[in-house]
Design a protein around this nucleic acid. Structure first.
Lengths: 230, 230
DNA sequence: TGTACATCAGTGAACGCGCGTTCACTGATGTAC
DNA sequence: TGTACATCAGTGAACGCGCGTTCACTGATGTAC
């Protein structure tokens, strides 16, 4: 049974992360406390260092997990859609992301909230971070192939064009600058709306924030992928 | 000279807030440290309590100041515009807000970043918070009077209609639900973009974030206030 | 299969640090007659 | 105008708290011959 110790180790590592997440969910993100985790584990605080070399290392692991969960959520939602229905895909993915954010607000804010001071995300996080944006890219690619253009044509600043070219290259896409820029805008807007809602910025303004987000998602999708004007 | 002591007091109160702002700007928001402020003031830590009864009270004062600065920034920007040019007003105000956020990122994040855990903003902040949104409302009102409609018509959820009615009543406006909802969306998108940029979410993606924001602001304005289609 | 050794998980004490807040106090500045 | 008293700013010590991290250690689990 050479794998026994390894298995116990893996389980405890997962348990530490689980407790860390629960703690952040309870006391707000940016409030990761090694000693409290050890306490809940029934261990002495220094024992946690057998599993994570430092607080930052645990934080990094949590961030990667969160990015992966978010990415998987988006991928799964997209996979269930009719590939040709790009507006539907956008709305479905946006809604799935929103639901995930509402379920695990502190995990969401770990990624998109105010960065933890003194913490710089290492490169390890990039691969996981890219997953969710890749989903959008694929939707834009399909829309581009269908000849869609944004409802309102953006003015693309010359200095941003090379950046768009780099982004486009990631998915071998031939999407236009205008569609890509609008997509970037809508993506930003979607995350902005989620963050606003999570942070309670609509408190005392809008009651049914779920409905509000739904309306936003639908609107954004149609702004990006050619409005049906009437 | 009965006002001397009062004047010194007012000056020191302002100085404490100034140091607090500088400290947050240097070490990130959510990092307000009474003892450090006292140290920089050359005072003993307990002396600060002559000016603010607690850390939360200082935080509240800073939040109100930030909302007021932001509100004034938006109002001033709008005041310099041709009142009839609603697209221009939107872009000008958005750009002014963006510049302010770039100049004082921690003040911006104090308002729109992840809330400080355990801190609940008291009602005193509301009056100051409303200023900036009132500016947008006035722009929307004018657009509505001119008969503008959004570039893409949103679907207004029934549960959100009463909320929109409440918001509309604040400025005696007769703006349509569709215009108001789209305005709310664009406003959220604008703050979302600023937050993304401040938090470095575009790092390694877009270099010239100022140009990016400019493009976003222009796009948002034309999405809200009737696109000129061609 | 059994023994000798290496690996590793968890302990317990300690280090160094810094925070917000309270409280009794001193001494200077303002006020009232 | 001068004196007696009240107000207030700032001091210094202390309380209670909790954090991340290190280190020498014990004892149990795994490995090699």
């Amino acid at each position: 049974m050479s794998g026994l110790r390894a298995r116990v180790r893996a389980e405890l590592t997962a348990e530490i992360k689980r407790l860390a997440r629960a703690q952040m969910e309870a006391q707000g993100p940016n409030d990761l406390n090694l000693r409290a985790i050890a306490r809940e584990l029934g261990m002495v605080s220094s024992a946690v260092y057998r599993y994570f070399a430092s607080r930052d290392e645990l934080l990094t692991a949590l961030i990667i997990d969160a990015y992966d969960e978010l990415g998987r959520t988006a991928e799964d939602a997209d996979a269930g859609c009719d590939p040709a229905d790009t507006v539907g895909r956008f709305v479905t993915v946006a809604t799935a992301i929103y639901r995930w954010a509402r379920t695990s607000p502190s995990q969401y804010l770990l990624l998109f909230g105010t960065p933890v001071p003194g913490y710089a995300a290492p490169i390890d996080t990039v691969a996981a971070a890219i997953r969710v944006t890749t989903v959008l890219q694929h939707i834009l690619d399909e829309a581009g192939r269908q000849g869609a253009t944004p409802a309102v044509a953006p003015i693309v600043p010359p200095t941003v064009q090379p950046d768009l070219a780099t982004v486009r290259a990631l998915t071998d896409s031939t999407v236009s600058d205008q569609l890509l820029l609008t997509g970037l805008q809508s993506w930003t807007a979607m995350f902005g709306a989620i963050t606003f809602i999570l942070n309670g910025q609509f408190r005392n303004v809008v009651g049914d924030v779920d409905a509000l987000f739904g309306a936003f998602a639908d609107l954004l999708a149609r702004q990006v992928i050619g409005a049906r004007h009437d």
